[in-house]
Design a protein around this nucleic acid. Structure first.
Lengths: 103, 103
DNA sequence: TTACTAGCTTACTAATAGTAACCGCCTATG
DNA sequence: CATAGGCGGTTACTATTAGTAAGCTAGTAA
């Protein structure tokens, strides 16, 4: 048999752990271009609930993949979310998963 | 605000749903090259239990990403798992996630 | 005979996700 | 002024998934 040459480094494990949480991949993928507000993302990802979107956005913010901005010059106050550089480089890979899915 | 131009097609959703199950990504990634038997995968992926590995392998087999072979010419009987063409094209994308993780 | 390995499965508990209702703030309408 | 509605969530409760530990079948090995 083969032995496994790609050792699992903690960073790789962490990346897969993040993406293994439900909706995380789809959220990042959906955010690939531009800024979105909470309800836009809700509308873009059918089945995703406000509770989990809220939880995931906090996780992604903490992971440094997403930036949250309160735009209080608008009325009513809007909150927009956008990918950081780190986030959008990951989203680029996720676009390849979508390509793969389409064969 | 932006509108989201990447419509979520069912195939893309299905791909992310598969990868959102815990360990699926790591399993495919770990299988990227060659054949592995059950206990090799267990050893390669710390934290993964026999129960879930068994469940995941069945799912991946059903999804057509993994091929299971019982090698009864060996004693004791060995079972080996390898990626199908479909599986290894996905694993190639997962390798990019690992690259991303290493920055 | 006893022990050990491979490849699982089963029963049970803990963690994660889904559902529905509700909140505070602001604006628009009657 | 009252009330209705949208935005961006939170809370409480249920259902689904994952983790843990034990055990099982079949085949060596000592």
């Amino acid at each position: 048999m083969n032995n496994i040459e790609t050792a699992l480094c903690p960073k790789v494990e962490a990346a897969f752990t993040l993406l293994a949480k439900k909706w995380t991949g789809l959220i990042l993928f959906s955010m690939a271009s531009g800024e979105y507000c909470f309800n836009e993302l809700m509308a873009a990802i059918p089945g995703l609930s406000a509770r989990l979107l809220s939880v995931r956005m906090r996780e992604l913010e903490e992971a440094g993949l997403v930036k949250r901005q309160v735009r209080d010059e608008l009325s009513p106050i809007r909150v927009t979310y956008s990918l950081t550089a780190k986030g959008s480089s990951l989203a680029a890979v996720l676009l390849k998963i979508a390509e793969w899915a389409n064969n």
